[in-house]
Amino acid sequence: MTDASTEQKGELGSFSQWLGVKIVEATGDRVVLAWDVRPELWQPYEIVHGGVHCAVVESAASLAAALWLGDRAKVVGVSNHTDFLRAVRDGRLVATATPIHRGRLQQLWLVDIVDDQGRAVARGQVRLQNLRNEHLAR
């Protein structure tokens, strides 16, 4: 899943940039991301591809988890479960990540995605593993 090395610095990485995702708010307690729907993000039925929602859910959770963990370690995603609740073909979407559990070895984050009318579009949970820096050198 996601290696949060760029997220450690408060960045999202080139894939999220290609999606058009912008950081609205970013702390170790909450991350808010926003992006505009465009045809390049559609699946064949001209609605946002589910993979876009999964990617944004993972990006929001990874950024938040990395900010909370700071220099103590890095985080990598180990599970992403995202439910798609409403089809979207245009407008602005906002994803908000909040912690469910932040432990010594793992973190669990909830991410809600809403449309520009505040309606639920998708909801995801991401479990991340906290890896001390010496584990990454192997």
Rank of each mutant, 00 (worst) to 15 (best):
S5Q: 12
A120H: 06
D115C: 00
H135K: 15
Q8S: 08
F15M: 13
G91D: 13
N133R: 15
L131E: 01
R127N: 05
T96N: 03
D29Y: 11
A137K: 15
D83V: 05
V32T: 13
W68V: 11
Q129C: 03
R127D: 01
H53N: 08
F15P: 07
L105A: 14
S59V: 05
G51I: 11
V78M: 07
K74A: 13
D116V: 04
D71R: 15
D29R: 12
G70H: 12
D112S: 05
A120S: 07
L93T: 02
A34N: 03
D36C: 09
A73C: 09
W68N: 14
A87T: 11
K9D: 12
G118A: 12
E40M: 08
A73M: 11
Q8F: 12
A61R: 07
S5I: 07
Q125I: 06
H53E: 02
C54H: 06
D112C: 02
R127E: 07
W42R: 09
E25A: 08
A73H: 12
V78C: 06
L136W: 00
A73W: 12
G51P: 09
A95Q: 08
A95G: 10
Q125W: 05
E25V: 05
G20R: 10
V111H: 03
T82Q: 10
L67C: 07
V111P: 04
